[in-house]
Design a binder for these strands. Structure first.
Lengths: 141, 141
DNA sequence: AGACAGTTTAGATTATATCTAATATAATAT
DNA sequence: ATATTATATTAGATATAATCTAAACTGTCT
């Protein structure tokens, strides 16, 4: 049934539902922790080495372009990916670089004069600080 | 006088005002366009090859840690840097990857229950879409 | 079957950033 | 002043992240 959902979202975006693409989507569905491209590639191929690194990157790019997946760039670290399911903001840990979802809420649009000739497609809030794990380690010293 | 200001901010953050560090700060002051580390290194060394790549990266990292400089990660591209002068948000162009400043405005804090045990240090809004230049090129076809 | 667009592949390549360990410099102490 | 120490810099090697290449494969349509 999830299988059908994945198939439908891929085809709805004009992408064939190939085994490799399916595997990427499935992995993201099962791992909400914002994996890196390398982790996705590793995991998907560990069991069944069907996919190459290039394909994983190609597919992630296509999925991002199609709006099914979101990439979050993190300073000095590999980019991280998650499914664009319910809208949400992000929290990035200063110490460990992990990315976590934050509840969605609307953000005020900037004054149109400050937009100038820009076309804004989305806006997205990034919180930074210490994740629960790192905050605790910090406190206990 | 700007020279003094740079010196004071460096020393106020416990960083020695070395020639290399000074040059990075000065370049960022004169180039508001969010240059990459490679661009900073290139530019600073073009006239006066005093600094190595490693030093540029080291210094940028120290300056970010000290809060004088901000790094903005961009998906699939090199990170970009700017001075942490007046608070501001950012706009990233989908097409060319350029980063622009957006006027600062306060963002509502998330409900504390959704914060959990996280410690939030800052939050920062990232707008995405087409910058003026790319928007125009898009329209004229 | 044949043609075609889209997709995948392994490996090479590029781009980005960090590490190493020797050296230099500045601040402090003697 | 000189010695001591912590901090900073360097060139080049290395690590990491992502993309490119060109050939091969797959699914769809006719």
């Amino acid at each position: 049934m999830d299988a059908e959902a994945i198939k439908r979202s891929l085809e709805g975006s004009g992408l064939r539902c190939t085994a490799q693409r399916y595997a990427v989507m499935e992995f993201l569905m099962d791992h909400k922790g914002h994996p890196t491209a390398a982790e996705i590639f590793e995991a998907v191929n560990h069991v069944d080495p069907r996919s190459s690194r290039a394909t994983t990157y190609n597919n992630l790019r296509d999925l991002v372009k199609a709006g099914l997946v979101r990439e979050v760039a993190v300073e000095g670290r590999a980019g991280r990916f998650d499914l664009q399911g319910m809208r949400h903001h992000h929290f990035i840990c200063d110490r460990c670089g992990n990315v976590e979802d934050m509840e969605w809420f609307d953000v005020p649009r900037p004054a149109s004069r400050s937009l100038g000739k820009r076309i804004v497609r989305e806006c997205h809030l990034i919180f930074r600080g210490l994740c629960p794990k790192c905050a605790q380690r910090s406190a206990s010293r």
